[in-house]
Nucleic acid binder design. Structure first.
Lengths: 112, 112
DNA sequence: GTTATATTCAACCAAATGGTTGACGATTGT
DNA sequence: ACAATCGTCAACCATTTGGTTGAATATAAC
């Protein structure tokens, strides 16, 4: 159906893919060109380009073209609404870095 | 292909549908029977039953059968991991970015 | 001007998703 | 015993998703 997708749909859908979450994690470190984003993955550049399109449409990253290189930049503010929505279901402890590291670890070792 | 869906995949995927998010919001107020969950929606009971199955498999709700009625109960702790994962992206600007980046570099170079 | 690099586009494909309907098993009420 | 209620199951269907390949575009380098 037409799926009048609201912001939360788009955000959660974008985050529901391990490749896209890995990309976001990579972009925590630094802005990156599309080709460099694609390098660690065992899929085509076109596939990564699509993933980046989805992340861009969700507002989770922005892309700026300079010359023939398109730079990808993390836009973490786009997660805020979804994050707030989730927190309304119970106050989780304030950010626990240890926990994040554990999950990041499973993320990185898992998607291959 | 691999579809090694981890916990975050399952959680975010479950949350990426407005019907399922509405159900979770309804269950904030009280436990509900499947039929009562379905009542406000303009779709079949079978469709709602499927949504509840997805939420259950994601751990976001639990279902307990008493007589012929199956009660649905919110399990907000299942959102905790995803919530932490998201919050982390927003917090690092404010908090200890350097420490996290060092951690990240270690993890990324350790890639298997 | 030719060649290499960076990225997207278009067409295709298999599998997953979100819905339908009708039949079914299990439980409750009369 | 019989009928009504609760919920799931199985089979189907259309659309979306996540991937592929090969051609196309735009910029950079030689």
């Amino acid at each position: 159906m037409a799926a009048m997708s609201n912001q939360l749909d788009t955000t959660f859908q974008a985050l529901a893919d391990p490749t896209r979450r890995s990309i976001l994690t990579m972009l925590l470190e630094d802005d990156m060109a599309v080709t460099d984003v694609a390098a660690p993955f065992e899929m085509s550049l076109a596939a990564i380009s699509k993933h980046l399109g989805i992340l861009t449409r969700a507002g989770l990253i922005s892309q700026e073209r300079r010359g023939r290189v398109k730079w990808c930049k993390l836009e973490p503010d786009a997660m805020r609404d979804a994050s707030i929505w989730m927190q309304s279901f119970g106050q989780f402890e304030a950010v626990n870095l240890d926990a994040f590291e554990r999950f990041l670890e499973t993320e990185l070792s898992d998607d291959d």
